[in-house]
């Protein structure tokens, strides 16, 4: 419109710039914190430009971890990565199959099956945390990857997302496939799966971030420090007794913990936005 008055654009730039500064400042401080030694940080006068301890801090964190976490951060990152991948892939696998069943087959109890899955949408793991813990313990899955991953796969978001996508595929495509002699397996492999690629990728991005950032569940079921995820590890590095907290290592670990999911968001922004917006509909 004609109202492209310059001062209005300037206002917009200022507001957005302020937003970006607010959003970025805490992270900038963490990056700074990872470049100084303990003394510089704890005297409360950390400079606002990076120091020269980054090499030492990162190699110490990655290779030997801090005093309190006892495990190298690289180990924790590996655990986080396995858990995030397990959750993302597991969820995609079980939910694309169940959505295929619910959308493309007619069978008794179809509605029931759908509702059994659908209701899980409403209750996050936090509200049923202790009973779930007990079951995982009874199954002997404490301190295992299966125990970390499986309970978090039990949710309806993936199924709903795939169902929603399948509903947009024209009926005629299945009919043409039937006339072309394709049964359920062929239709799934030759048509449904290739068409679902972007949906799968979008769900993967969201679930990877979700898995990487899990806190309460791994906190409860991992007792061995070798099974710790990085988000848990960093919490253990910060204690109320200030003297024990190695802030430079904690901040280094925080930066390391943010890198994978933030990279995913930045480089797969289109898929990330798609996944986020569509899982919530």
């Amino acid at each position: 419109m004609v109202e492209n008055r310059p001062y209005r654009d300037l206002m917009a730039y200022l507001v957005l710039l302020m937003g970006v500064v607010i959003v970025a400042f805490p992270v900038y401080l963490a990056v700074l914190g990872s470049t100084f030694d303990a003394a510089t940080i704890s005297n409360g006068n950390m400079p606002l430009l990076p120091g020269d301890q980054a090499g030492i801090n990162y190699s110490q964190a990655l290779l030997s971890g801090g005093r309190l976490a006892r495990e190298p951060v690289s180990m924790m990152m590996l655990n986080s990565f396995i858990m995030a991948m397990g959750i993302a892939i597991g969820k995609i696998l079980i939910s694309i199959l169940s959505a295929f069943a619910v959308v493309y087959f007619s069978f008794p109890f179809r509605k029931t099956a759908f509702w059994i899955i659908f209701i899980t949408l409403m209750l996050p793991v936090e509200v049923r945390i202790y009973p779930t813990y007990k079951i995982v313990a009874d199954l002997g899955l404490l301190d295992t990857y299966a125990g970390l991953i499986l309970p978090l796969i039990a949710s309806a978001t993936g199924t709903l997302l795939f169902r929603q996508f399948f509903m947009t595929i024209p009926d005629e495509l299945l009919e043409a496939s039937k006339i072309d002699g394709a049964g359920p397996f062929r239709f799934f492999k030759d048509t449904l799966l290739p068409l679902s690629i972007t949906t799968i990728a979008a769900l993967f991005v969201i679930q990877f971030i979700y898995g990487w950032n899990q806190y309460l569940w791994p906190l409860l079921i991992t007792t061995k420090s070798s099974m710790q995820t990085i988000v848990i590890g960093i919490k253990k590095m910060i204690t109320t007794q200030d003297a024990l907290t190695e802030w430079q290592i904690a901040m280094t670990t925080a930066v390391l913990a943010m890198i994978p999911p933030v990279l995913v968001v930045i480089f797969m922004q289109r898929l990330f936005v798609k996944g986020l917006v569509e899982t919530e509909k």
Partner: peptide
């Protein structure tokens, strides 16, 4: 349908997009 020895042309063509 596959065994009826028929072929069908759909209104929206139903071509496999991929």
């Amino acid at each position: 349908p596959a065994d009826r020895d028929i072929a069908m042309v759909f209104q929206n063509y139903a071509l496999y997009p991929h």
